[in-house]
Amino acid sequence: MTSVNAAFGELAAERRIASAPLSHVSIELGHLYMEDFEAGPERLREQFGRVAPWAAAVRSGWQRRIPGGRARVSTCFLIDDYFSRFSTPAELVPMVLEAAAEHDLSIDYLARESSCAEADGVELARLVEGRLVDDPPPGTTGSRPPVKETGWLCNGSRSPRPGSVQAMGPAQRWAPPVQNAKRGHSIFVDVELWDENGGRRTWSCPFLAAVWQLLRLGMLRTEGELPLRPVPAGASWPARWDDLPPIVQLNDQAAPFSAYTTLSVLSPRFLPVELAVRTVLSQVAVDAEVLEQVRRRSDGEGVALEDEIVDRVTYVFG
């Protein structure tokens, strides 16, 4: 008898990673905080007025880049329901859509900021926190666990604590913090990721914004599955934010929510926040299989992507 090739598989022993549908670019048309809402619909119109020409430029840029001009561009809008609760979806959403329409902008997806912390029983912020791999200062051999300040993340070595005394030695003098990948001089950044009050954790705005970027880039998975999928909008808007799905799809013809790259059009007042977001994103280890999936997809359609996730995130400040 000739030899027989036997194959045996066990599903629980294999890693199965779902792939995300991907647009070429996800454009964030705005991010609404309570202060913007309180400033009235005029503030929203101004925002959309500023964004519209940039969104059009990016769309036509991608259309030129993709053969046949078939660029997949999706737009999204984020509402803060995490740091403060204001208004209701029934009152706010139509106002936002109307203000966007005045500038010929169509919002494909509407998301709630609190979904970046937790949605549908999945704690997205915890998933990302678990994937942080700290930027190691020179001399990090792995012999000791990484030095951490609980709830903080930096891009270098912090100053020694004032007054700390080394064993058998004098008190340490002040020394400056140092950026690990400095070129000549340091730009040291230390980001607060969360704080806790009475056992309740509040994630910081830059950390949730980093989760939001990873979600838009289709980089997150939980147990191998996509953690959130957009839900088509219902016939009417609910009266409570908690009754609104984490990501609502407003346009049934829309290109996929997540994309190879993201663009956010922001006021310059968000520059410090985005520096913090990039500091966080630079230290998130995305699953190697997910990175590979996206690379294969983009190679397959001839789109060259930046190797580093943080370089796929772009901005217009104005």
Binding site: A12, A13, R15, N180, P227
Partner: peptide, 29 residues
Amino acid sequence: LMAGETVRVSRRPIAHALSPDLLTGVDCR
């Protein structure tokens, strides 16, 4: 060891369970 990551388990021919892969940053000799 990591939220949202599955432990891989095979039962044949012997029970074997493997944690998710985790990364540690190093910069040294």
